[in-house]
Design a protein around this nucleic acid. Structure first.
Lengths: 148, 148
DNA sequence: ATGTATAATGGTCAGAGAAAGTCAAACGTT
DNA sequence: AACGTTTGACTTTCTCTGACCATTATACAT
């Protein structure tokens, strides 16, 4: 498993117990034996505002990074996502969304997998490459509205 | 025996034990002492959707190629369908298939609905109209081999 | 108290690294 | 000659690193 995945897992695990995660960047970096900026990478690719996470931090002595999550109803959460996806969506971001949907029981593995497949580059192979992320976004938005 | 055949055999052998094969392209290439793109050749000529295989992959650090296979009990039926759908697929024909899938318990209503939405004209609004049935066919084929 | 240096954090971004994909040319077989 | 196979140069995507920057707290001098 990739380092980023391991770090993500660790943070998610804390989230499972607490409603907010406060961490020290340099400590985490030491813990996972990587450079501090790796932590930023993990956060910026996985704990994204599109999923309702927001991140605060403070530098200097006693600095920290705090990740919290807006507790939205399912409907609001989906609306929020609809709002934030503009008109392009990559395959890897779809994966991130789906993982989240599963975590919050909005989808089962099977359904998530169907969506993943439908939105894969494989499926969309005949759509012009420049248009693909746009079509993906369209399909995804349609699907979101129909989740229930 | 040709190299491609040997590599195919190797992958098939893993399939005999597992239901899905996850491999590292460069590792395999080293293992069989060939260039990495040879692996792509083997996959693209032998593990094709028409034969009931589905391939996903990821680039970058920790990348992989994952090949999965459709459920054997449904192979004949699905193979038939794959065969019949050649290049184009309309929304209404999708509906007919989906109804069948539900009748044969290959899908529940919820999943069928997801597929219906994903393949609707609304989702595919930005795909050129002349191309739409073709893209729909592509997506549907990918989905079919992932029913399980 | 007030201002200033220093230490302790975290942020950013470009580039290196680690895979996999593509495509056309060369090579072999039939 | 036609077809299938093998190869390698070039591309794309994702991850990881490090040098340099910005901010905050604290200690120290006045």
């Amino acid at each position: 498993m990739k380092l980023s995945d391991i770090i993500e897992q660790y943070i998610q695990q804390v989230f499972a117990e607490e409603n907010t995660v406060e961490l020290k960047r340099s400590e985490l970096a030491t813990m996972f034996n990587c450079v501090p900026s790796q932590i930023n990478y993990v956060i910026s690719t996985r704990f994204i505002p599109e999923l309702g996470f927001y991140v605060e931090s403070r530098r200097g002595g006693g600095g920290y990074i705090k990740i919290s999550r807006i507790d939205l109803s399912k409907t609001d959460y989906l609306y929020d996502i609809l709002d934030k996806i503009d008109d392009k969506l990559s395959q890897s971001v779809v994966d991130i969304y789906l993982k989240d949907f599963i975590r919050y029981n909005m989808l089962d593995e099977k359904a998530a997998n169907l969506i993943r497949v439908a939105l894969s580059d494989k499926s969309l192979i005949r759509v012009d490459k420049q248009k693909r992320d746009r079509v993906r976004a369209d399909i995804f938005k349609c699907l979101i509205v129909n989740l229930d």
